[in-house]
Computed example of a mutant assay.
Amino acid sequence: MIRGIRGATTVNNNEEKEMIQETKKLVEKMVELNDVAPDDIASVLISVTPDLNATFPAKALRLIDGWKFVPVMCMPEISVPGSLPQCIRVMMTVNTHLKQDKVEHIYLNEAVKLRPDLVEKD
């Protein structure tokens, strides 16, 4: 079955190192919690808010072992007044055995505000 896994995070600064670090952390958690291998991934779309342009966050995925052939694309997020700034969003399309309600969508840092209904409470 093909499913989408959502994820989002934020950074404090428009800096390449931080953007790559936070994107890598997010994607690694998405695949870990959803038991996804690189061969399971059809594609990954990454959007960034207009205030982030220091790098392509997709570069982070090239640092993950086995991801050489995973198709990845970056794009700008639409600029909605009052929306969460400095945000990196990920949509990963995967082949999985998980039912829709068992997919774990991951929201880190300030991005937990985007979907509080999906963020597990500690």
Rank of each mutant, 00 (worst) to 15 (best):
Arg3Trp: 01
Gly4Lys: 05
Gly4Pro: 01
Ile5Tyr: 02
Gly7His: 07
Thr9Ile: 08
Thr9Asn: 12
Thr9Lys: 07
Thr10His: 04
Val11Pro: 04
Asn12Cys: 00
Asn13Glu: 14
Asn13Gly: 06
Glu15Val: 14
Glu15Phe: 13
Glu15Ser: 09
Glu16Val: 10
Lys17Phe: 14
Lys17Tyr: 12
Glu18Gly: 13
Glu18Tyr: 06
Glu18Ile: 05
Met19Cys: 06
Met19Val: 07
Glu22His: 08
Lys24Ser: 11
Lys25Gln: 10
Val27Lys: 02
Val27Asp: 02
Val27Phe: 03
Met30Asn: 03
Asn34Thr: 04
Asn34Met: 03
Asp35Glu: 12
Val36Trp: 05
Asp40Val: 03
Ile41His: 01
Ile41Asn: 03
Val44Gly: 03
Leu45Ala: 11
Leu45Val: 10
Ile46Asp: 03
Ile46Gln: 00
Ser47Cys: 08
Val48Ser: 07
Thr49Lys: 09
Pro50Val: 10
Asp51Ser: 14
Asp51Phe: 11
Leu52Asn: 02
Leu52Cys: 09
Asn53Asp: 12
Asn53Ile: 13
Ala54His: 05
Ala54Arg: 04
Ala54Lys: 07
Thr55Ile: 14
Thr55Trp: 10
Phe56Val: 04
Pro57Asp: 04
Pro57Gly: 09
Pro57Phe: 04
Ala58Gly: 13
Ala58Ile: 09
Ala58Trp: 00
Lys59Gly: 05
Lys59Gln: 04
Lys59Thr: 00
Ala60Asp: 06
Ala60Phe: 06
Ala60Ser: 12
Ala60His: 03
Leu63Pro: 00
Leu63Glu: 15
Leu63Phe: 07
Ile64Ser: 11
Asp65Phe: 05
Asp65Ile: 08
Gly66Asn: 10
Trp67Gln: 03
Val70Arg: 06
Val70Asn: 07
Val72Arg: 01
Met73Cys: 06
Cys74Gly: 05
Met75Cys: 09
Pro76Ala: 11
Pro76Tyr: 12
Pro76Thr: 12
Ile78His: 11
Ile78Glu: 15
Ser79Ile: 10
Ser79Asp: 15
Val80Asp: 14
Pro81Ser: 13
Gly82Tyr: 12
Pro85Met: 15
Pro85Tyr: 15
Pro85Phe: 14
Gln86Leu: 15
Gln86Ala: 15
Ile88Glu: 01
Ile88Lys: 02
Ile88Tyr: 06
Val90Thr: 05
Met91Val: 11
Met91Arg: 15
Met92Cys: 11
Thr93Arg: 03
Thr96Val: 01
His97Ile: 10
His97Asp: 15
Leu98Gln: 09
Leu98Ser: 04
Lys99Cys: 10
Lys99Gln: 13
Lys99Thr: 13
Gln100Asn: 05
Asp101Cys: 05
Lys102Tyr: 02
Lys102Gly: 07
Lys102Ser: 09
Val103Glu: 00
Glu104Ala: 02
His105Ala: 03
His105Asp: 04
His105Tyr: 04
Ile106Met: 00
Ile106Asn: 01
Asn109Gly: 12
Ala111Cys: 09
Leu114Thr: 09
Leu114Met: 13
Arg115Gly: 10
Pro116Gly: 14
Leu118Gly: 07
Leu118Lys: 14
Leu118Pro: 07
Leu118Phe: 11
Val119Ser: 10
Glu120Thr: 07
Lys121Glu: 15
Lys121Leu: 13
Asp122Trp: 12
